Amino acid sequence: MKNYTTQFTYGNDMKFLRWLVIATVCFMVGVLIMNNQIAAEGVSDDSHSAQLVDGTFYNNAKVEQPGFRKTLGIFIRFMTEKKIDAEPKHELPMYALSTQQLASLSNDSVHFVKLGHSSILAKVYGEFWLFDPVFSERASPFSFMGPKRFQPTPIRIKQLPHIAKVFISHNHYDHLDKAAIKQLADKTDSFYVPLGVENDLIKWGVKKQKVLSFDWWQDHTTTNSQIVFTPTQHFSGRGLTDRNKTLWGSWAIKVKDKRFYFSGDSGYFAGFKEIGKRYGPFDITFIETGAYDQEWSNIHMTPEQSVQAHLDLHGNIMVPVHNGTFDLAFHAWYEPLNRVTKKAVQDHVSLSTPLVGEVFSIHDPAINKTWW
Results as ranks from 00 to 15, higher is better:
170 H>S: 14
217 W>H: 13
187 K>D: 03
206 V>F: 09
208 K>G: 04
171 N>V: 05
211 V>M: 01
178 K>V: 15
196 G>Q: 01
191 F>P: 06
211 V>S: 01
196 G>K: 00
186 D>V: 00
195 L>T: 08
210 K>V: 02
171 N>M: 03
193 V>C: 02
217 W>D: 13
201 L>W: 04
211 V>K: 04
205 G>Q: 06
170 H>Y: 09
171 N>C: 06
171 N>T: 10
185 A>K: 00
181 I>A: 04
187 K>S: 08
186 D>I: 00
185 A>D: 00
173 Y>S: 03
175 H>C: 13
190 S>L: 12
177 D>P: 15
210 K>W: 03
179 A>E: 13
207 K>N: 14
183 Q>A: 10
196 G>T: 00
178 K>I: 13
182 K>C: 04
184 L>Y: 08
192 Y>G: 04
180 A>M: 11
177 D>W: 11
212 L>W: 05
197 V>I: 12
211 V>D: 03
177 D>A: 14
204 W>L: 05
198 E>F: 07
198 E>Q: 10
190 S>Q: 15
168 I>W: 07
171 N>H: 05
213 S>P: 03
194 P>L: 01
199 N>T: 12
174 D>Q: 02
204 W>A: 05
203 K>F: 14
199 N>D: 11
190 S>G: 01
189 D>P: 02
176 L>R: 06
167 F>A: 14
217 W>Q: 12
168 I>L: 13
170 H>L: 12
175 H>V: 07
198 E>D: 11
179 A>K: 12
212 L>D: 10
202 I>T: 15
200 D>I: 15
217 W>E: 09
213 S>Y: 04
173 Y>W: 07
198 E>L: 07
198 E>V: 05
193 V>I: 01
212 L>H: 15
203 K>R: 14
204 W>Q: 04
197 V>K: 04
203 K>N: 15
172 H>T: 11
199 N>C: 06
187 K>E: 07
172 H>D: 07
216 W>D: 08
192 Y>D: 02
173 Y>R: 07
205 G>L: 05
208 K>D: 10
176 L>E: 08
168 I>M: 14
177 D>H: 10
193 V>A: 05
168 I>N: 12
168 I>Y: 07
205 G>P: 06
180 A>T: 15
174 D>K: 00
195 L>R: 11
191 F>E: 08
181 I>K: 03
176 L>K: 09
193 V>S: 07
206 V>M: 11
210 K>P: 01
205 G>S: 03
191 F>L: 10
173 Y>L: 05
185 A>W: 02
209 Q>S: 14
170 H>N: 14
172 H>N: 10
199 N>H: 13
167 F>M: 14
173 Y>N: 06
190 S>Y: 14
193 V>M: 02
214 F>K: 03
180 A>N: 13
